[in-house]
Every structure is written in structure tokens, then in C-alpha cells.
Nucleic acid binder design. Structure first.
Length: 224
DNA sequence: TAGGCCATCTGGTCCT
DNA sequence: AGGACCAGATGGCCTA
């Protein structure tokens, strides 16, 4: 996982296509999207199912917050399992509080589902291999790859602008772009893109992926 | 079997 | 008061 944090923009695409296999990150190939989601039986930490069933379909998840028949038994099981840490659970809750807790749980589940939907949307726009044979990106991998993808796009945009400015100058034309180069997100100082040529070999991971040092890698930018 | 990743529950905190 | 957000705890599933 650490390699993702310093992954250069140049290396992004190469790594993203083989990421799952190379990094050994889980999910996707075997479980499939729905199985990976696993929005099913409630977790053992909370509303315990009587039987440790495998993750159930989403429909069952919604009902998990509405258990009523065995909820007191389940509550007792939780209380015993949690041991001394659950001082507040020593006394049995009134049904009203229990109902409130269940609604809070359901709300939290919905919130996490929304978060996962957003992550799925992010995965969909990250150019990595979207095939059944490639594992689904983990949450952390999705975020790190997205970050590096943004950096890579910013670098490409900046280099394109430099090229346009160079061409304009070489043709004796006015070069408004060169006069006031736009900086993506106003962070030009953070992305010294043109510095790559002067950099030495990266002492860390990025060179292993890109084959060349990158200005986006903090290790490449470190002073010797 | 250990480790990674995940869903879920839960209690606390902050905001409206 | 109710909802959103967060972090800790817990246990299941999967892979190496």
C-alpha cells in the first residue's frame, strides 16, 4: 500500500492496470461486486443473527434494524460478549431506547451505503482495468489512485500549456499562456513538473514503478 | 493460519 | 431533539 502514496503520475496507468495482482489487494475477482458489498446480515458486533449466516442480500440488511422477536436475547448475547467494557449495557434498555438505537443503526447503514456508492462512482472513473478478472480496488487504494490520477492530469495539463507556449514563441506569436500560465487549483508551487529532467534517481519506490524519477514523488524531490 | 478488507453496531460529539 | 459524522470494536470472508 505504501507504494501508492508515492506513486508518480507517469506510473499511474501502468500500475493501475496491474495493481490488484501486483499489490495483492483483495476483492472483485472472486467475490464479485455484490458479494464484496456484503450489505447483508448485521455484524456480530451489533444485532446478532441467531445463526452466523453468510452475508445476506441487501434486502435482509434493511430488516436487520427492525428485529423485534429475538432482539432481547441478541442484546444479552452482546452484553455478555462485550464483557466489562459495556457498563452502560448492564441494565436492559427500555424498548423505546432500543427502537431509537435501531433507527440510528439503520441511518448509519444508509450513510455507509451512500459512502460506498460514492466510492463505486470514483472507481468507475479511475482508469484501471474494469474486468471481471481484476479485483475491485479497495477503498484506500481507490482514494490513493484517484489522488495520483488527479496529480497526473494536472501535470499533463501543465506540460501541454508549456508546449503551447513554446510553439507560440517559436513562431513569433504572442504567448498569453506563457505570460500568465494557468495553474491547476492554484498549486503550481506544489507541482514543479518541469523539474523532472534535473532529478536524480529516486531512492524510494516510485522509480520501481515508473522506471524514471518523477517530480510528483517527494523522495525524488528530496535534497541529497 | 495470519493478515487484509470489509460491514455493522455503538457511543460520543457537533451541528441545525 | 434529531441527524450527521466519526472512531473503536467485533467478527466474517478471502487470499497468500
Amino acid at each position: 500500500m505504501a507504494e501508492l502514496k508515492s506513486l508518480s503520475g507517469d506510473a499511474y496507468l501502468a500500475l493501475s492496470h496491474g495493481y490488484a495482482a501486483a499489490a495483492g489487494l483483495a476483492y472483485g475477482a472472486v467475490r464479485g461486486p455484490e458479494a464484496a458489498r456484503g450489505y447483508g446480515a448485521p455484524g456480530p458486533g451489533g444485532d446478532l443473527p441467531a445463526v452466523p449466516a453468510p452475508r445476506a442480500p441487501a434486502a435482509a440488511a434493511e430488516s436487520s434494524g427492525e428485529q423485534s422477536g429475538d432482539e432481547d436475547d441478541a442484546f444479552e448475547q452482546r452484553r455478555r460478549r462485550r464483557g466489562p467494557g459495556a457498563a452502560a449495557d448492564v441494565r436492559r434498555r427500555p424498548r423505546e431506547q432500543r427502537s431509537l438505537r435501531l433507527s440510528i443503526n439503520a441511518r448509519e447503514r444508509r450513510r455507509m451505503h451512500d459512502l460506498n456508492d460514492a466510492l463505486d462512482g470514483l472507481r468507475a472513473v479511475i482508469p484501471y482495468a474494469h474486468s471481471p478478472s481484476v479485483r475491485k480496488l479497495s477503498k484506500i487504494a481507490t482514494l490513493l489512485l484517484a489522488k495520483n490520477y488527479i496529480l497526473m492530469q494536472a501535470q499533463a495539463l501543465d506540460e501541454m500549456r508549456r508546449l503551447v507556449a513554446y510553439l507560440n514563441q517559436s513562431q513569433g506569436l504572442a504567448a498569453p499562456v506563457a505570460a500568465a500560465p494557468l495553474t491547476p487549483f492554484g498549486q503550481a508551487a506544489v507541482y514543479p513538473f518541469s523539474a523532472s529532467a534535473t532529478l536524480g534517481p529516486c531512492p524510494d519506490k516510485c522509480a520501481a514503478f515508473s522506471g524514471s524519477p518523477s517530480a510528483l514523488c517527494k523522495h525524488c524531490n528530496e535534497k541529497p
